[in-house]
Computed example of a mutant assay.
Amino acid sequence: MKHLILKAVMVSVLTFLAAGSLKAQDENVKDSVKRKKFEINYGVGIAIGEKKDSTGKVDQNKGRFIGGVTFTRLDIGLTKLVDNGSLSLSAANNFLDYKPWKTSTVSFDILQMGYRFNSHFKVYLAGGFDWTHIRLDQNITIKKNAPILDYDVITDATFSKNRFSASYVHFPLNFELRTKENNHGKRFRFVFGPEVAFLLDGKVKQISEKYGKVKVNDDYHFTPFRYGGTVRVGYGGLGLFAKYYANDMFDTDAQKGLKNMSFGLTFGLN
């Protein structure tokens, strides 16, 4: 029940913020010819109090608030489990052995709000969604509603796909440093900052000839509150990212010290 309440609260917050940003967009569109207060980069943004130079262009060296609905920082990469500092799983966690090239992460942001100090530095809080997909290597199924993270060995079917996933709503706080634009209108970016996330759901998805496609939802003892940090380096709208979550993946004693990290490509770095 607590997870259903948490999901409802998180989705309501994001919906409320998105609705507020869209309302602000509609109100400002009417005055956009006079005030020119919109930035559009991979979505709809709102810049408040823009300063212009003598030529009528926005002065990038003047500070201003930014924010709105967006679709940026699409992260697609690989996930690695870190068992008490080791990339090899302990005996207690060996049932989570996974296919390394098919264990992945996907995340993106849909809202952001912050302050651009000048053309080289800005700080912003974002909101979006994050998925971790663990492709289990063994022919097992994770038990639903079990008092601990437990599993059954399946002997009457062979899974062609056995995916164990967690979905979170996340709120990263980003500090972005940018170089001056080159002759192609692009620049290098360095982005870093902490992140907190709240569990939406866990899922087991399996495919076999005997049972077909099976999907089961449960929290599966994934930690309800996650925190960590992200680093991105990029050029133009493309970059590389690395994430590390400082607390445990699961809220069970047997999995104490089991964390996860991920790395890969960022699209729409903005």
Rank of each mutant, 00 (worst) to 15 (best):
N41P: 00
N41M: 14
N41D: 12
N41W: 10
Y42D: 08
Y42T: 12
V44A: 13
G45K: 14
I46T: 13
I48W: 02
G49W: 00
K51D: 07
K52N: 08
S54Q: 10
T55L: 14
T55N: 09
G56C: 11
K57D: 14
K57L: 13
K57C: 01
V58P: 02
V58N: 02
D59A: 03
Q60P: 00
N61G: 07
N61P: 01
N61D: 14
N61K: 07
K62L: 01
G63T: 05
G63H: 01
R64Y: 03
R64L: 01
R64V: 00
F65P: 00
I66T: 05
G67P: 03
G67S: 10
G67W: 09
G68M: 08
T70S: 06
T70D: 07
R73K: 12
R73S: 02
G77E: 04
L78P: 00
L78N: 03
T79H: 00
T79M: 15
K80Y: 08
L81D: 03
V82S: 05
D83E: 12
N84C: 04
S86M: 01
S86D: 09
S86A: 09
L87H: 09
N93M: 11
N93L: 11
F95W: 14
L96K: 10
L96Y: 12
L96D: 04
D97A: 12
D97M: 08
D97V: 10
Y98T: 10
Y98K: 03
K99T: 15
K99C: 04
T103N: 10
S104G: 07
S104K: 15
V106L: 14
V106S: 04
S107E: 08
F108M: 11
D109C: 08
D109T: 13
D109I: 11
L111H: 03
L111G: 02
Q112N: 09
Q112Y: 13
M113N: 06
G114T: 10
G114P: 04
G114S: 03
R116P: 00
F117K: 04
S119L: 01
S119N: 13
S119G: 07
F121T: 08
V123I: 15
A126Y: 05
G127I: 11
G128K: 09
D130P: 00
D130T: 05
T132S: 06
H133C: 04
I134Y: 15
